[in-house]
Design a protein around this nucleic acid. Structure first.
Lengths: 247, 247
DNA sequence: CAGTGGTCTAGACCACTGA
DNA sequence: CAGTGGTCTAGACCACTGT
């Protein structure tokens, strides 16, 4: 049959040499050459066709390897010009943003949630500006705490746009955190995340059990669904919290 | 010819309906169903073969769409079990980590670098522990400042393992920052990044022009090459600095 | 052991884009 | 306009893993 002959036509069996044949092996080999300095920043790599010959594989296989390396920030690819080694590693780091409950239980600690305050009001100016709504929009303001083995782990200061999500009015948030309620209630299409440092104010210090002015790690998140702002949240962590990743 | 007949065999021309045919269209359509709630968390999606029929395309095309959605954290794929909608979005955020010079010039500001201090010494215990070397390892300790239009933008506290990189001894670092020197000198194979908040000490406050105890955003980075620790750096930013991303 | 995803192949056409 | 990457296809075999 046709396809069988294609197989049999293969010029050289795989095990003959140290040649890479899977896209993972090609990725590893290319990365190796990059780290060993065979190919230096700015250098032009051989074309996909050439590499396919070198590695004795299909062009699609080379393509996948190079495409992923480009996605990971090692290479720059352009039609017609070819594939170059990135000269200024505009590298990217990926951070996993887990559910707080999961993060705590993954540490082997007991998770506890508490609602500190709940109030309905009109969006203050800064929030209206940040969310892109008018100041007369009704919002739900929640202050929550998350504990790990009884120790404060995260202070959550959340605002929910009742104009976009009136159902939140009926939710009590006394036993389930707003985040968990939100992810099971509505999907979201656009998220913006920010990391920064803030000084603890009176309320933060009280809730987190630290002193006023302490440096706290803060994560902010704004969420939209179908163009409408849904929620904005500031999450603060006690001293010593560190968000890490490796690549 | 064979391949032509394959083309001609196609049961239905592409423009006949609203069917998605490229992997991007399939991704968009699946995402749409996810956000619209057609497929809810935990639900099992049709198999690749079924979807290929639905979308009237090759299975490889469906595969790429679903594979990327899984990489992006929307789906969970397992052989034999099939593809499910992730119930707890363990979403990930990607941050670009640019060269400081580039970050500043991209803001349209003037970049200036200054070496504050340079000393050679033996690795202190905490550094030895963090890098995984013995305390008798010689290291180069550098304190540098990066300015944007004359304003402090980043304080860099860097340690270079002279055992792994003796060439650093000869580098002056008086006009070129250690990061730029490093990326052009040696490649790296493994990087660990961490974000946290710290209180400014005397020296940090002096250099950054803030007051002692101020909350500062800090990024740490450890780098290895071929298993050997190369460098560890703490970068601190003035108040108000925020690292953001969206997805 | 059977079903589902994971990957490879040979070949084709398309879409940019630099010269 | 021609070269290079981007993508699709039909088909095959492989590798897990639940039953």
């Amino acid at each position: 049959m046709y396809w069988q002959s294609r197989r049999l036509i293969r010029s050289r069996p795989r095990k003959d040499g140290p040649l890479a044949t899977t896209f993972r092996e090609i990725k590893a080999d290319v990365l190796d050459r990059l780290t060993r300095g065979d190919w230096r920043p700015g250098d032009l790599l051989p074309t996909e066709v050439d590499l396919a010959v070198t590695y004795d594989c299909a062009r699609a296989t080379v393509n996948r390897a190079l495409r992923e390396l480009a996605e990971e920030g090692y290479l720059d690819r352009k039609r017609k010009s070819g594939t170059r080694v990135r000269n200024a590693p505009a590298r990217q780091a990926r951070f996993d943003i887990p559910l707080i409950r999961r993060e705590i239980t993954a540490l082997g600690a007991q998770y506890r949630y508490a609602l500190v305050r709940r109030s309905e009001q009109l969006a203050p100016d800064w929030l209206a500006a940040r969310m892109g709504v008018t100041a007369s929009t009704p919002v739900l303001h929640l202050i929550c705490m998350h504990y790990a083995d009884g120790h404060p782990f995260q202070h959550e200061d959340r605002w929910i746009n009742l104009g976009a999500l009136p159902a939140a009015r009926a939710a009590l948030f006394d036993t389930v955190g707003p985040n968990e309620w939100l992810v099971t209630t509505i999907p979201f299409s656009d998220v913006q995340i920010g990391f920064s440092a803030v000084a603890a104010d009176r309320s933060l210090a009280d809730n987190l059990g630290c002193t006023e002015g302490d440096a706290l790690f803060q994560m902010e998140r704004s969420t939209w669904f179908e163009g409408k702002p849904v929620t904005y949240v500031k999450m603060c962590f006690p001293r010593g919290y560190r968000m890490t990743t490796r690549y």
